[in-house]
């Protein structure tokens, strides 16, 4: 930026003394890793020199002429060496960096009298920068579910021939398993998914006395305390 001010100052000074004979000035244009020229437009008078500098840059840059009224291809590098050119004739001289041709474009205007200021670019050519760079909250309100579901209102009764129905209430979304046992043997197992009141119907049960184990596991894998029911099927 400081360099830009110097350059602009130099340009202004140039015009201030335009009437005086043969005092040539040098204007500096800095190539930057922000991928713009600082400044991108300079106004000078015939006989002035422009020096392009690249001190401290870590990207490859160079200066190529972009209008047919001059021909320049400066050597590039990281950083590129300084490059100077003396403009003798009035005119508008465009230049660019061949590596960053969209953003690093610039113009040298050479005239004995100062030219009018350029019009502002249209909205389709003005940057709309992202201004939302606040610190990120990586997690908020994160709570792990470590609460066991609760089973209540359990009941079991006959539901048709060789069938039984187990009713229950579970406190949250869970997988509920019922296991019909006689002694140590498991006769039938059935599973359902439920939230609140639910039922499971089990068929193919022979008459006899059953112990029914009811279990519930919630989405997070927490298990309810298992409950036992008894049922006599005749």
């Amino acid at each position: 930026m400081r360099r830009a001010l110097i350059a602009l100052g130099a340009a202004a000074a140039g015009f201030g003394v335009a009437a005086a004979p043969a005092q040539a000035d040098t204007v500096v244009i800095a190539g930057t890793d922000a991928l713009v020229w600082e400044p991108s437009l300079v106004d000078i008078k015939p006989g002035d020199t422009v020096t392009w500098t690249f001190a401290g840059t870590t990207q490859y840059h160079n200066v190529w002429s972009a209008s047919p009224n001059w021909s320049v291809q400066s050597p590039g590098g990281v950083p590129a060496p300084d490059f100077s050119y003396t403009f003798e004739a009035e005119g508008t001289y465009d230049f660019y960096c061949q590596v960053h041709p969209d953003t690093m474009r610039g113009t040298v205007r050479v005239a004995a009298a100062p030219p009018p200021p350029p019009p502002p670019p249209p909205p389709s050519a003005q940057p709309f920068g992202n201004d939302a760079g606040e610190p990120l909250t990586i997690e908020s309100n994160v709570k792990l579910d470590k609460t066991r579901p609760r089973l209540s209102r359990l009941s079991a009764r006959r539901a048709g021939k060789r069938a039984a129905r187990v009713r229950f209430r579970v406190s949250e979304q869970s997988d509920v398993t019922v296991r019909f046992k006689r002694g140590k043997r498991t006769i039938k197992t059935a599973e359902t998914s439920a939230d609140g009141v639910g039922t499971i119907r089990v068929r193919g049960l022979r008459p006899g006395s059953y112990r029914i184990l009811v279990r519930a596991t919630d989405l997070a894998g927490n298990r309810a305390k298992s409950r036992t029911l008894r049922l006599n099927l005749r």
Binding site: L35, Q59, Y60, Q98, V99, H100, P101, D102, T103, P122, P123, S124, A125, Q126, P127, F128, G129, N130
Partner: peptide
């Protein structure tokens, strides 16, 4: 990246490649 009228803004960078904000 964007322009003021909401259009995509593109700038060629042969070295690093394009970076948007």
């Amino acid at each position: 990246a964007f322009n003021r009228d909401g259009s995509f803004r593109y700038a060629e960078n042969v070295d690093l490649g394009f970076r948007g904000d």
